[in-house]
Design a protein around this nucleic acid. Structure first.
Length: 426
DNA sequence: TCTGGGGTCCTAGGACCC
DNA sequence: TCTGGGGTCCTAGGACCC
């Protein structure tokens, strides 16, 4: 059996933790740049504020209902997530951290326990240790556990826990679930399925397997197997290394000067390089993109992107920054109002893998001694920034001037930044 | 005036190899 | 008139997840 533990309205719950006055009130958390809703309290959902809906379109509703609005505060959410996961890890030997607010536990061998009772104990403990409310679903496959957790969340009379064990319990649950809400079936496949008379998760479980394989491919076929109680997805205990790393942002106000765009791109490249080293990886491809608003009139729209193949895989901030600057130089077109830019690293391999270089006939030596110096420098850079805070030591072009996000309603980083705590208590 | 960010996997088709 | 079989790698596009 698998358990899926899902934090309720996670980001909103984090904000409420440090601001108990928000309980019972409608609360929303906005995306980066304060664009749309990415987390909503039950009260906010009841008012009709939709997931992913643009905040500016709901201005009146927000005011009318005195909705508490927050900018996304990921350092707070990340830290609280880690606390929740540490607490849950004590309940089973194997845990897969699936996302910032969800994890799977392997409950095989727990048959001597009353699983529903065990889940209720988990809920109480997480609530007590972290203050975050969770819902728990248990089933014989990960997909069924997901379906159960959805039930637990939707039906308050279940007390936050749903267990699907007998065939009758499973078919009963699946018959009450629209097919597009099954994990792995989204809106597009949902619409296709509805057109073919497949409306509920139960309909899908019973649909002809060859048809599913043909139309929803191997991933859809797996989902169907899982709904029928045959486990295809095992717990992933170690996260595989990332295959691509992206840092991108929308700008609060449009950026027009190349110099300012360079500041932003240098910042994104530095962040990417840091993430890459944290993974213990190197990248050989670097993409930069810079774009105007997709909502601008057609003649004012531009989406520039180009990828550079690096002479050898690296995780050196200086080299990646240099490459990013070169690419930006190529894609920058004057006269546009840039609203967003980003850097993507790919062609990623581990630092322990043998270096695959694409040296040209005329390249000079790869300078092994120089590479050792680069590694030392990066180590020192990361150590300083870890000790004294991100951005303490950075390349001069990685500058915050001339571009910034909108974050008008940012709460303090209560658990990760000393100066924010002092501000709260004084 | 305002519209997020960061990922994964799969497929099809083209180019190429022997 | 016919025109093999078995591969790899790369890219674009489309789907999905949170």
């Amino acid at each position: 059996m698998f358990a899926l533990i899902d934090c309720n309205n996670f980001y909103v719950s984090c904000e409420r933790l440090f601001n108990p006055g928000l309980r019972g009130r409608p609360v929303v958390v906005l995306s980066n740049n304060d664009g749309c809703f990415i987390s909503r309290s039950e009260e906010a959902k009841a008012i009709g504020l939709g997931m992913g809906e643009s905040a500016f379109k709901c201005r009146e509703l927000l005011q009318q209902h005195q909705v508490a609005v927050y900018s996304a505060n990921f350092s707070l959410y990340g830290d609280l997530s880690a606390r929740v996961m540490r607490t849950l890890a004590d309940f089973a030997p194997d845990i897969e951290i699936y996302s910032i607010d969800e994890c799977f536990l392997d409950l095989s061998g727990f048959d001597r326990f009353d699983l529903a009772d065990y889940a209720r104990q988990m809920r109480r403990t997480v609530e007590k240790h972290t203050g975050i409310p969770v819902s728990i679903g248990i089933g014989s496959t990960k997909t069924l556990a997901k379906a159960a957790s959805r039930m637990a969340k939707k039906n308050s009379e279940l007390g936050g826990v749903a267990l699907l064990r007998s065939d009758a319990e499973v078919s009963d649950a699946l018959s009450g679930m629209d097919v597009e809400h099954v994990w792995g079936i989204g809106a597009r496949y949902g619409a296709l399925l509805h057109r073919h008379g497949i409306h509920t998760a139960l309909d899908f479980a019973g649909a002809p397997a060859p048809w599913v394989r043909r139309n929803l491919h191997i991933t859809g076929a797996r989902v169907q197997e899982e709904l029928n109680g045959r486990s295809c997805l095992s717990l992933e205990l170690v996260r595989p290394p990332k295959q691509s790393i992206c840092t991108s942002r929308s700008f609060g106000t449009p950026v027009t000067l190349k110099e300012n765009l360079q500041h932003a791109v240098a910042h994104f490249a530095s962040k990417c390089a840091f993430k890459l080293r944290r993974e213990g990886s190197r990248a050989s491809l670097l993409t930069v993109f810079a774009a105007t608003s997709p909502f601008a009139p057609k003649e004012k729209r531009y989406w520039g992107t180009e990828t550079l193949s690096l002479p050898s895989a690296t995780n050196d901030t200086l080299l990646l920054l240099e490459a990013a600057k070169l690419v930006l130089e190529r894609i920058y077109r004057p006269g546009y109002e840039y609203k967003k830019a980003g850097v993507i690293l790919s062609g990623i391999g581990s630092v322990t893998e043998p270096q695959q270089t694409t040296l040209s006939l005329f390249d000079t030596d790869p300078h092994p001694e120089k590479q050792g110096r680069s590694a030392n420098l990066m180590e020192a850079l990361d150590a300083l920034n870890s000790r004294y805070g991100a951005g303490t030591l950075r390349v001069a072009s990685d500058s915050p001037s001339g571009w910034k996000q909108r974050q008008e309603e940012l709460s303090p980083a209560y658990t990760t930044r000393w100066c924010d705590i002092i501000e709260v208590t004084t």
